[in-house]
Design a protein around this nucleic acid. Sequence first.
DNA 1: GATGAATGAGCCTTCATTCAT
DNA 2: TATGAATGAAGGCTCATTCAT
Lengths: 191, 191, 191, 191
Amino acid sequence: MEKVKVQNKREAILKATLKMVNNHGFHAAPMSMISKQAGVSPGTIYLYFESKEDLINTLYSELKAKFAEMIFNGFSSDMAVGDGFRVIWRNVLNYKCDEPEEALFIEQCDNTPMISDENRHKGVLAIQPLYDLWERGQREGIIKPFSRIMLFSFSLLPILYLVKESLKRNVSLSDIDIENAYNASWDAISL
Amino acid sequence: MEKVKVQNKREAILKATLKMVNNHGFHAAPMSMISKQAGVSPGTIYLYFESKEDLINTLYSELKAKFAEMIFNGFSSDMAVGDGFRVIWRNVLNYKCDEPEEALFIEQCDNTPMISDENRHKGVLAIQPLYDLWERGQREGIIKPFSRIMLFSFSLLPILYLVKESLKRNVSLSDIDIENAYNASWDAISL
Amino acid sequence: MEKVKVQNKREAILKATLKMVNNHGFHAAPMSMISKQAGVSPGTIYLYFESKEDLINTLYSELKAKFAEMIFNGFSSDMAVGDGFRVIWRNVLNYKCDEPEEALFIEQCDNTPMISDENRHKGVLAIQPLYDLWERGQREGIIKPFSRIMLFSFSLLPILYLVKESLKRNVSLSDIDIENAYNASWDAISL
Amino acid sequence: MEKVKVQNKREAILKATLKMVNNHGFHAAPMSMISKQAGVSPGTIYLYFESKEDLINTLYSELKAKFAEMIFNGFSSDMAVGDGFRVIWRNVLNYKCDEPEEALFIEQCDNTPMISDENRHKGVLAIQPLYDLWERGQREGIIKPFSRIMLFSFSLLPILYLVKESLKRNVSLSDIDIENAYNASWDAISL
DNA sequence: GATGAATGAGCCTTCATTCAT
DNA sequence: TATGAATGAAGGCTCATTCAT
């Protein structure tokens, strides 16, 4: 019972941080504002996090982990390369659409000295199964012999950007747009 | 002579801002630090910029304008679509490689509430000639009938990301990488 | 117990403000100086007051209210007009003599754009019983048919000024002076 | 010619100071604002005045001197006491009505530590002829045997206040009000 | 664990004053 | 004389963090 309550508080703080930083930016989201939004006292935050920096880094880290987990939903390493990629690509799209707030937060942090390098690196490691899939695809002569990062930038980065922009402009991607995007993504990396 | 001196001060402040914000982040780059780096007094900044926000926005705005200008170097609207695209693509690549600091600053600002929407929008308008080229290509049946944003996200976004990542990891892109990237970019948007 | 401590801090800040502004003037009484005098940290002031302007206005407002309250000590609306006026006149005199610091602060603020009009107006309303007394006196044919403000300026303003000047010059008003002043005040407004 | 221009500048600065301090208060009337209003450069002010404090004190001093001069317009020391007082009283009234800005400035400074005591004292000396008149009146048994300051506070202070308040409320004093005020003033100090 | 009043270092900004021109 | 760009000390205020309760 105690433990549950504690979890709630920690979650509430993280959630409030996400919202406040997204809406106001890091430097305009004071701890007092976050604590009020979370329904706890400012002092309480320091029971769960060492500092504001730690709070931000933890949130970033957990969101990245969640993202990495979600994109492998329904994926299994014995799928055909094309099928596996389609599953993952779809998951990436869905994550962006379903959790735009989280995605925005990640991006807002991504190019900032606020996030420690170590932390940033952890995100990369978490998508290992995708790298493995691509490697297998390359061995099977299905995927172009590009570096991981190049494969990523041509097949997943575009859809991430597309969704972000469409959300920002309040227009939704049509099924045709999505199909086109998928095809372009696949064409760009497949032989 | 006088005019030159003034220009120098304004430039020095902008340059110092770029450096300090890149290295420390917006919220950890106080005006006093910027002024010291620029070799002027804190008060002097306010002779050229209204506030810290104005300083950041102005810098962002000018960098975006410079970027928009550079990517059309050697480009002319009567070029063949493929040739024109190649010129622009190369320019984008070169800008990123030659001015990584500027590019980083732009990206650090891009997902932040710090930059006014109006300002952000100006950047979009500046690359109109590229949009015109794509439209002509679509009329000529050379370019896929995708929206601007989709064409952008598949043909230019990847190279922007690639260079950023390679710089971050201190590895340079080989000519083969670049050729591959260009081909993938072109394939993704051309029929 | 806790409530008491809080009150103490608020009071200490107001008291320190009174002293520092009186001694140095508004523009030469920085918040840091006030906070030091009050024995609190600068930030603490902002727990009780929104801004320096708010602090000054609140102090002004409370002093005016206290003044309005004190001048009706021992006064009751069913007194004879002459008796009532004498009570109030005496109270005004006593307030000025007993609380010269407060009176000085009020005067220092009175001709300043620092105090909001709304705030200034509240002080006027608080002495309504005096206005009522004068009106009754006029109906009874005892008080001259002058406007409130004229009655005020001839019967109370002089004594306010007299005490201020005598305090400034470190000379005390003799009983005869006071009796003379009272008689002159009464003569000036009575028929 | 040169000299005239100089005078103009000095006057322009003083005039601008009067206006800006009246409208915004001392602490919200920066030298730059005053210089702009005066149509000169900030540096120029320091050719005529040592500091902001000096500027304010000089203005205060000159206005007081002008006031002292004006109130003796048409007065001569061989007038009958009653006639002389009436002339002076009228002049005080007229000054307040004709130069409300100057009068306001004087009052705004009067209760402030901004004005040096020495300076404040000079104003008192300048109305010596009035004191002389009163003394003569006392010797002739026409004026009550009150101290100067008491005579002042009952016979001139009220009209100063009355005009100020009526200007503030944008209502003008009627001839009857003025006649009443004069009579009350005279009654208060005459035997 | 939880609170929130209190802290005080440090930030952005202002502005009286200077000085090279 | 006159200028006005430049200065930099100092001010009002914020906010991450602490600690007595």
